[in-house]
Amino acid sequence: MKTVPLEYFLLLSAVLFFIGMVGVIIRRNAIVIFMSIEMMLNAVNLTLIGFSAYLGDISGQILVLFVMAVAAAEAAVGLAIILALFRTRQTVYFDEVRLLRW
């Protein structure tokens, strides 16, 4: 059986990481920036699973499990921070939050 080459998964992962990175930089909405970060995490997960399958090593999949757990924790804390930000500033647009900006 011919399988899809590993390079294709790695290239796809690089493209998805690029899209997530551009999303973080160009968007102003904190929640959309947050979603772009999740997208970058997922692009890395794809690389890990690809290498895990082609090397026959299970460690990559274990690491993906841990990344998912950390992403869930990050989602909870990050959205709580956005809620607190909205409560004090009435905005979620990062260019209107500039107290700590140089």
Partner: peptide, 26 residues
């Protein structure tokens, strides 16, 4: 795509944790 790489458990967890829990929260 995870199913292509025969990572069945992670494919299910991807749907459950990301598409389910995290996206509902967002």
């Amino acid at each position: 795509l995870y199913l292509f790489l025969s990572a069945q458990v992670l494919a299910v967890l991807q749907i459950l944790v990301y598409a389910g829990a995290i996206m509902v929260l967002i």
